[in-house]
């Protein structure tokens, strides 16, 4: 798609990476740096915008343009930039506290507008940078510094939230699965409009092994329901069938292969993807991983710029003298 020959090294900045040893952010960074050459976009046309939190240090480590902005507000800067500079490829880097708590409003509005942003939501189910308070994705009853008797909040399911916000592309991946995350980045980049990838990310300090069940070699094949377009939805032991107007996870040995739901991420009706998103719970017994939804809808920046272009086409480019002169004038001699 381009004659650019860039390598992972070209996208690696000279800054020392300062996350805690063992943090899931390292593997995500490495995967993104490894993926960017494939994107085929010159470095100067790539912008990473983050909010505040551990994950939001991400832009410093990429040899692209980048802003480390205000807590929760990355989508606002990214929206202004993406609308006014449609030539750029804009990524938003955010965490569960950044995008689902303080910045919840901006996330849902970016998604409903379908602004051309690729949003990577690092979900570690904890506040890391502030040293270990529960987050909006923490499981209910979580014991943390701010909830010694257990958290009372019902957590958000980020995928359900995004779908409820009219998102056109929603996917889930896992920090340590380089191959799968690369596939998700590829699919998100191919999508025109907002794309949200929730990435399960391990915080070894304050919430270690929160996602162990989907990472451990012994348990993951049973826990992960692979979402592959055109393929039946199943894990090693379970499959998904239509039942009672919705979807249900059943043991594979209780149904025949032909009863399994064939995944179609392009299903126009969002209730399908929403039903998929509800198959997982906080305990991660069954976790769909992959692209939940990928549908076409006009991209917001394109619409905005079309209106401007249309005005210029139909009315001619603005003439400042005419504007200032107006129509209702009088002359003093």
């Amino acid at each position: 798609m381009t004659d650019l020959v860039l390598t992972k090294k070209d996208f690696t900045s000279d800054q020392e990476v300062k996350w805690c040893p063992g943090c899931g952010d390292y593997s995500i960074l490495s995967t993104v740096q490894g993926y960017l050459p494939e994107l085929g976009v010159p470095r100067e046309n790539v912008v990473f915008i983050s909010g505040i939190g551990c994950s939001s240090r991400f832009p410093y480590y990429l040899e692209t343009f980048g802003i480390h902005s205000v807590h929760g507000r990355a989508p606002t800067l990214a929206t202004g930039l993406a609308i006014s500079r449609p030539d750029l490829t804009v990524f938003v880097i955010t965490g569960d506290g950044d995008s689902l708590s303080i910045g919840g409003n901006h996330l849902i509005h970016a998604l409903r507008r379908n602004v051309n942003l690729k949003i990577l939501l690092f979900n570690n189910r904890i506040y890391g940078l502030t040293k270990g308070q529960y987050s909006p994705t923490s499981e209910q009853g979580k014991i943390t510094k701010s909830t010694p008797a257990g958290s009372l909040d019902t957590p958000f399911n980020p995928i359900s939230l995004a779908l409820g916000a009219e998102a056109t592309f929603v996917a889930r991946s896992i920090d340590s699965d380089r191959k799968h995350l690369t596939e998700m980045l590829r699919a998100a980049s191919a999508h025109k409009g907002s794309a949200l990838i929730e990435i399960y990310q391990n915080c070894p300090i304050f919430n270690d092994d929160a996602f162990q069940i989907v990472k451990d070699g012994e348990t993951k094949s049973a826990a992960i329901l692979q979402l592959v377009h055109g393929q039946p939805i199943k894990s090693a032991t379970h499959g998904v069938i239509y039942k009672e107007g919705g979807l249900q996870v059943v043991p594979l040995d209780s149904v025949s292969e032909s009863d399994l739901v064939i995944h179609n991420a392009n299903t126009p009706d969002p209730t399908y993807a929403f039903a998929l998103s509800r198959l997982s719970s906080s305990i991660l017994e069954h976790v769909p991983v992959g692209v939940f939804r990928d549908v076409e809808r006009a991209e917001y920046g394109g619409l905005v710029n079309d209106q401007v272009a249309d005005a210029i086409k139909t009315q001619g480019a603005g003439d400042l003298s005419k504007l200032l002169a107006g129509t209702d004038t009088w002359v003093v001699k």
Partner: peptide
């Protein structure tokens, strides 16, 4: 925020 992003 969008205005600042556009300025950038």
């Amino acid at each position: 925020g969008s205005a600042l992003g556009a300025s950038y």
